[in-house]
Amino acid sequence: MRKERAAPVTDLPVLLPVRSPCVPVLSLRAWHGLVLAAAVLMFAPAAGAQAGSEELSIIGVIIKWMPLLLTGFGFNLLISVLAMALGTIVGLGLGLLQLSEFRWLSRCAWALTQFFRNAPWLVLLFFAMYLIPYEFRIGEVTIPFPDWVKAVIGFALPVMANVAEIVRGAVQSISSGQWEAADSLAFTRRQTLWMIILPQCVKRMLPPWMNLYSLVTMATVLASVVGINEMLTLTAQVHNAEGGRTDLLAPLYAFALLCFFIYCYPINLWTVRLERRFNVKS
């Protein structure tokens, strides 16, 4: 028993000791966002001067289309939240199945996890878009499956696999002494897992899980490839509607970048802070 549980095996960087502070790390800082914002604004007046009188300035274009673009961004967020929720629920189950006492069950769960963890997200998205029918019939009832629902499922697949891996890694990182103590107090395996091991894992799982969420959010723009009206798709449409002006290209996409940055940066900041705090305590 001791032997099996001795070595915590995980390749998740977040479960490893925090990087030493003297090593310079490439990470986003607040000033990166400011540079981005400055870039958008800098392009604006210069391009506006060149533009003819009937054309809106770049700032004008962005303001005009902002409600639409932000709706698109909202759609990205909706997809990311739903995919994360679905993926987390299924992933928790899959992670726990990997820890099952039944060999074949844990093997299957492991294989499934590895398969979805090592597939490109875009391929999984295509997979979901083209293999899931647009509606399901159960007797009389027809359940429609619009494209955006399929996209949610497409993104939930890699989330599921990564969450499963996070769960497995966290459980295996708990010292074998906890299992032994629980065993010696006659807790069943299930009780031990739910009352003793998993509560301790929550802390350890939170930072990698939040990290995963910001990756998912950024990945949702892949849905533009399959024609979902998310921010990137709308940005291209806005650019078209404005006559394909080349001077608009950079500012429009910079605006998209800025939206994602403003959303994801605080999440990353918070993740790093949590990681530090948990590391100091344990």
Partner: peptide, 27 residues
């Protein structure tokens, strides 16, 4: 049979009292 380990192996997410009460209640 009660057992005490070199590394204590208390459950870190529970208070001292809860550590003592858990097994009699749940087991």
């Amino acid at each position: 049979v009660g057992m005490v380990f070199q590394q204590y192996n208390l459950f870190p997410h529970r208070t001292a009292l809860q550590n003592i009460m858990m097994a009699p209640i749940h087991v």
